[in-house]
Amino acid sequence: MLDRPKHLRKIKFLNRLKNWVKLTSINVYCFSSGCCGDEILATYGPVYDLERLGVNFVSSPERADVLMIAGTITKEMKPILEDLYNNTEDKKVVIAVGSCAINGGPFYKSDYILNGVKEIFNVDLYVPGCPPRPEAIIYSILRYKERFK
């Protein structure tokens, strides 16, 4: 068996270190409205403390690893969301929370509504529920962590 070059081993170690760092500090940018926004606020509270899992709610999209999009998505919001997506990092994960953000939800017949964020850019995790319980939102973060293990 041939020996692998040394610098490759170094890269492997660096990748593992990067994954470990990403596990312990996750920067989340929330774009929320309506009743799903109230549930995300509840996860920030003391009962379901999201910060004990290493989640940081940041206020600028440039620093975010995770984009969390919740609530109704209208056609007027489309340029804002595209701008938001282009400003974030290259390797990011998009989570769509609530049935409105997944597929239009109860208002899908309306003229003003986009059928979910999946029409604008690709979504990695879907969290169904109208609105989902705060535990369901925390569970989606746990699923996100599985990727780095």
């Binding site: 997944i102 995790l125 879907y126 169904p128 989902p132 319980r133 535990e135 569970y139 699923r143």
Partner: peptide
């Protein structure tokens, strides 16, 4: 059951 998170859209 409320843990319904999925990766694929078709699994919904």
């Amino acid at each position: 059951n409320y843990e319904l998170t999925e990766k694929d859209f078709s699994a919904l």
